[in-house]
Amino acid sequence: MIVTKEKPLEEMMRMLQGRRRILVLGCDGCTQPPRGLREAQTYRTLLEMALGRKGGEVDCVAGTVSKQCDTALLAQNYPELVKGRDAVLSLSCALGVQLLSLQYPEVPVFPGQNTVFLGYEHRDEGWLREACQACGDCVLGETGGICPVARCSKSLLNGPCGGSHDGKCEVRDDIPCAWQLIHDRLRQLDRNEWIDGIVPPRDWRSSRDGGVRYQKKDEDWNEPARKEVKR
């Protein structure tokens, strides 16, 4: 899931300065924590109070769509919701904000969230945890399902650095050392091949370093297009 964190109210107020007819738009897609209709209604109330204190008439409405990053799903009810509005505050991740702006350029869209990472909910701890950086060359098969690129603070590929202590990262004691986790997991699986092998410098072009990434939607993963994307 894509994890977001709400922007401070002051920042939202700065962005929405001068706007009076605002649509607060939730997203029922994968964004976590949930940012659906209920959350949109809460934000609407907050905004009305905050903008109302500045005087003048304020007309905020709340709504939601199934998935803000899906053109077809947007078409189902967004045109109706946005009618007569002079601004949209999107509660989805950055993908929704961008697609709304692209597909419906008449009304300006502002982000109500910061998009922070791709992760999952670790239920035992009540935390959402970063797990993937979309680097485009997955090594999870070699690392026991724990990602060194996303979960090692230095994205090391050949084991832990010298700062790993008591299984913790040198950055903060509440960050487990990813390589300790990988080491323990591979031991558990009785897989020791990575221990003495050397991973050579990797090709980061599959990540952001190859420039903006595109992939042709209808082409199967083993079609030539994938090669273009990967390397």
Partner: peptide, 27 residues
């Protein structure tokens, strides 16, 4: 490898870690 930048005096810096210390030796 190098200490993580958040431990220093410019914690907001972007790091590189294009290669790790083992790959650096290899280079």
């Amino acid at each position: 490898t190098g200490d993580h930048q958040t431990l220093g005096n410019l914690p907001g810096a972007k790091n590189v870690f294009d290669v790790d210390s083992i790959q650096e030796l290899l280079l």
